[in-house]
Amino acid sequence: MNARITLATAARILRQLRGDHRTVALMLVVPCVLLGLLAWLYADSPVDVFDSVGPALLGVFPLVVMFIVTSIATLRERTSGTLERLLTTPLGKGDLMLGYALAFGVMALVQAVVASAFAVWVCGLGVAGPLWLLVVIAVVDAVLGTALGLLASGFARTEFQAVQFMPAFVLPQFLLCGLIVPRDRMPGVLEAVSDVLPLSYAVDAMKDVATRTDPLGDVLPSLGVMLVWIVVALVLGSLTLRRRTP
C-alpha cells in the first residue's frame, strides 16, 4: 500500500462523483426530504415522536446510501475493465479499499452536515448533546456503509445482484436496529443478533447524542464497535478481491 496511490484513488472517485451532479444532489436532498416528511407526519401527535425517531434515521441514511453507491461503483469498475487494468499496476488492494472509504467519508461529511442541520434547524429536532458528535457518528456510519458495500460487491456478479444486496445486507439491520421495536423488547435471539449488527450501534449512538447532555461516554463504545466492523469488512473485502480471475 502506498499513500500517494490511495489519495489519488480517493481523489479520482470524488472527481467521478463531482461530475455526476444528480447523484450528489440525491445524496444530499433525499435524507432531508425524508426527515422533513417524517417531522410532518408526526406534527400533530401529542408526544414528540420525531425526537426519538429522527436521530435513528440520521443513523440509517449514511449507511444505506453509501452502501448502495459503493457497491454499484465498484461493480462498475469490475465490469468495465478499469479494475482489471488497475490490478496490473502497483495499486494495492488496500489502496483501492481505503481510497473508496476516504472518498465516501468526505461525501458523508457533507451529507451529515446538511442532514443534521436540516433536522435540527428546519424540522426542530431536539438534540441534547453536541451537534458535532452527530456529524462524527454519521461519517463513521457512512464509512461503515462503504466498507460493507465493498465487501458485498465482491459477491455480486451483475448489477441486478448488487442492487439486491441492499435489501439483503441492509434491511435486516434496519428491522433490528431498534427503530421499529426497541432493542430491549425484542425476542432474546433477535436482540442477540441486533447486538452484533453494526447499524444498531449507529442508531444507539445517535439516540444517545439526542437524549443526553454529556453522551461521549456512551457514544465512544458504539463508535468502537463500528470501527471494528469497518476494519473487518475492509480486510474481508481485500481478501475477496483477487488479482487473478478465472
Binding site: R4, R15, R85, P90
Partner: peptide, 25 residues
C-alpha cells in the same frame, strides 16, 4: 496492459483518466 474493452472511467475527462493512471504508476 491495454484491455480489449476500453477501460477508462466514462465519467472523467481524458486528462483526468490519464493523470490518475500516471499517479498510480
Amino acid at each position: 496492459y491495454l484491455t480489449q474493452a476500453p477501460s477508462v472511467y466514462a465519467d472523467l475527462t481524458v486528462r483526468e483518466n490519464v493523470r490518475y493512471l500516471a499517479r498510480v504508476v
